[in-house]
Nucleic acid binder design. Sequence first.
RNA 1: GCGCCUGUAGCUCAGCUGGAUAGAGCAACGGACUUCUAAUCCGUAGGCCACAGGUUCGAAUCCUGUCAGGCGUACCA
Length: 594
Amino acid sequence: MKNAVRNIILNAFAQACKNGLLKDSQIPEMEIEVPRHKSHGDFSTNVAMVSASIQKMAPRKIAEAIVASIHDPDGIVEKTEIAGPGFINIVLKKSAWYPILSIIHKEDKAFGSSEMGQGRKVQVEFVSANPTGPLHIGHGRGAAVGDAVGNILAFAGFDVSKEYYINDSGRQIRTLGRSVWLRLCEAAGKNISFPDDCYQGDYICDIARELIGSEGNSLLKKATEPDAEKIALPLESVTEENDSSVDEQQKADALASDDPVALCAKYAADKILQGIKDDLSNFGVTFDRWFSEQSLYDSGMVQDSIKEYKNKGVIYEKDGALWFKTQMYGDEKDRVVVRQNGLTTYFASDIAYHMEKFNRGFDRVIDVWGADHHGYINRINASIEASGRSREQFDVILVQLVNLLRAGEQVAMSTRSGEFVTLKDIVDEVGRDAARFIFLSRSYDSGLDFDLEVAKQQTSENPVYYVQYVHARISGMVARACEQGILSDINALDNTSLFEEFLHLLVEPEEINLIKLLSSFSDVVEKGALTLHPHVLFTYLMSLASEFHAYYNKHKVITDNMELSLARLFLVSSVKKVIRNALGLLGVSAPERM
RNA sequence: GCGCCUGUAGCUCAGCUGGAUAGAGCAACGGACUUCUAAUCCGUAGGCCACAGGUUCGAAUCCUGUCAGGCGUACCA
């Protein structure tokens, strides 16, 4: 609808030029917006004001010229007015809105989608938590955001691929192996002192016990050998002993198959990763690809990319280490890619990974990170720019922290001690829908208070029910209409021509407001895709639900008046479809019954 | 010190690619169920949009500075 109005204005502008009412045919960036106040019409444009300097005319004069030249072949404009400093306000006829309802029914699950992305390939990488422990609440927010952003972009016409990057290489995996091995030695009856830098959580002990069970005696036997616990060395020590060099893959030594610590690492990482996959799947999040960091080493991609950047002169040697000239691209200082001891840094594989992403043909790459990683942005930006890609092709979504509360009281969490509330705990306690909806209720630029008690409540304090209730209510109404024979069956609503002749009976302000809101859904999706901010859909859903509840309380849909009932059923059924589509983008279900 | 995010109603936050009279939920107060689901609705009250300058026809929105909070600032991941 907004586009229809835009065309009318653009045509009027051109016509006004042709008639000599305007001097210059140039149209600057202008806006067609839905005004805050209903008294300002259905749409409003600032085109006259922004053209003032080009036309060298007073805004109101320009507005008059445009309004005088408006041609409205479809007869959708009720009236126009010039207001304030030069706004052109446009009021549409009620009849202009009705066709939206048929469009919603015809397009159904595709209503609101667009071709904005023109099929461009976009990758959204999110969660990507290290497989060294279960997902916690922060990962949950990242998962909800990444998944929703991906859904929205896909709906807006991008070719989206969702990806999880598995950090299955390097130091932290070695540490995981050490942690498990030490717990295993402990279980074998040894008295060990568990280092601070190892993973403290109970799940490590569980894995150690499992490992004893599945691997039988061989591991247990090794664990009882004298000094068994002493082989639990950090990655640096292992590689130093083996006189590792830059060209060697750091993982090869650390995960040698005859090393019990390496065996523990492999087992534990697989186990934990499987848990992560299960938790995400329970949370309704699926990925198109799980990408292994180790595979970048195995394929030689890491070394290749280092070589390539060396050739370009952006990687250089200093103090026995290799540095990337990130400072040249706006970072505070240059960053190390390969350390003195020959081990690559995390940055090295990230350079390779991002290079690989673009090599796979993505036009655009979006990373979703926890806000505590923001210091990393400049680095990755530098590597992408140095490879000749445009900065526009890469976005980082920084998701701010989640503050977990229970009935207003902060829940103490410490990853260090291993005492934290996992995503699984939260989903088990409050449910998937409530969790996802709350995660997406606010802009990820802001910190989020997540109160477990509120999320669990089935009251108006909990927004997810407010919206889902609309969907369930309408389902109930449609079912009743079928029982009463007003509709032959649920599918009767798909036959739009049966209803169109009665739509003129929809004259109540609440009805027109609802239709207007429905018609703006595609604008909301577009805004979400443009800004990469899913919470705009949350806000939209809340206003749509609110408008519906108000309507419901004031007017009966099913009445003795058959024709009016049909028209209203067609309206509420449209609301139902849009609610379902919008909730779907956020990964929240739309129940038929509550 | 430097960098990123945030500062809007009592609380939690929308609004920020500049627009006309500042929005919602919760909390508070007063109302509405012989009714298609009261998990709902209607009404009242609540604001120097952190502060100070600037840009312009117009600033919560953009720029600069100040203050406050969170996070970051490794040859860690």
